[in-house]
């Protein structure tokens, strides 16, 4: 359940950004969470709901999460498989099982809409 501590650090970042931009209300928070970030989206959303309602800045904030696809490279033939949500079991080019992801572990606060 490390999602709760991740959302706590999100709340701190939101607070800082709101102060910086003299905003009093956050409307939308857009996050990018890669499929390999090790984050359970449901738990993240649950933690967000729980923490957001305690702060006047975020009571009405809406959380939008995008889950970017990633690419895998075959370590045997260097073939790249783009646009995966899940790890392909075999390389479509050489049938070897040694596929290594390129990124996919991002956990990024992309943008916020505030007023």
């Amino acid at each position: 359940m490390h999602e709760l501590s991740l959302v706590q650090s999100l709340m701190e970042q939101l607070q800082d950004l709101a102060t910086e931009n003299k905003a009093t209300k956050i409307i939308t928070v857009t996050m990018e969470i890669g499929p390999l970030a090790g984050v359970v989206i449901d738990s993240f959303e649950f933690a967000f709901e729980a923490l957001a309602k305690d702060n006047p800045l975020t009571t009405k904030a809406k959380l939008v999460i995008s889950k970017p696809a990633i690419s895998y490279s075959c370590l045997d033939c260097q073939h790249v498989v783009d646009n995966c949500q899940e790890r392909p079991s075999l390389c479509p080019a050489c049938q070897a099982p040694h596929l290594y992801p390129d990124g996919g572990d991002q956990l990024i606060l992309s943008r916020i809409e505030m007023e």
Binding site: S9, I27, L107
Partner: peptide, 18 residues
């Protein structure tokens, strides 16, 4: 324009502090 919202592009990792 105080009722207008503004959008800030942040692109910052949640794990930045860590």
């Amino acid at each position: 324009n105080s009722t207008d919202s503004k959008i800030i592009e942040v692109h910052q990792s949640l794990l930045k502090a860590n």
